[in-house]
Design a binder for these strands. Sequence first.
DNA 1: TCATCATATTAGCGAATAATCATATGATAA
DNA 2: TTATCATATGATTATTCGCTAATATGATGA
Lengths: 96, 96
Amino acid sequence: MPENQDLGKLAEFFKIFGDKTRIRILWALSESEMCVCDLCALLDMKQSAVSQQLRILKQSRLVRYRRDGKVIYYSLDDDHISRVLELGMQHVRESA
Amino acid sequence: MPENQDLGKLAEFFKIFGDKTRIRILWALSESEMCVCDLCALLDMKQSAVSQQLRILKQSRLVRYRRDGKVIYYSLDDDHISRVLELGMQHVRESA
DNA sequence: TCATCATATTAGCGAATAATCATATGATAA
DNA sequence: TTATCATATGATTATTCGCTAATATGATGA
């Protein structure tokens, strides 16, 4: 067994994926960089709700962002993220 | 983007991993089959707490079980599960 | 500087959830 | 059948969490 602390971090890591809104955001970003209002339109959600989830994703280092004028573009932080998404989706589809 | 419904299922799938107790159970089972009382001892937790989490893992098809006399042995249901665990742990350790 | 646009933050509410305690089920052996 | 052991279930409680509404921040262009 890995150390208790690592297992705790692992649970925290997966907890981020355990919400439909965040999954949709992550999946959208895995296809292309997007600004907040793109995400609002795509997900049909209030801006504040999207921003809140983006903050969580930022704090967990799952996404990064860059500013371009007034607009802030978000993208996935690293390769693991989309690999985790893919692997999970594979499971979901196979066990359907 | 995958269908909305699939993304919902994916979030539900990851939600299961988003709890320290369940992660510890899953990891333990990835190393070997165990009965409830083995898990109680290993995790130092009440039997009812362990059973409740096992029920969730059962319902989500992440674990299966077999009875041998009075004892019920649990194990991981399929290969995806431990691969997801490994991949997640890899991320956690690299971003430490 | 000031108005505007994109994004972030805060407070409050309702829903979901994990642990505990107590009790129930169900298989085994005498 | 009955006592016992392993496991499951139910009720309760405390906490976590995501959304909404309202407001704040902060960069841009006039």
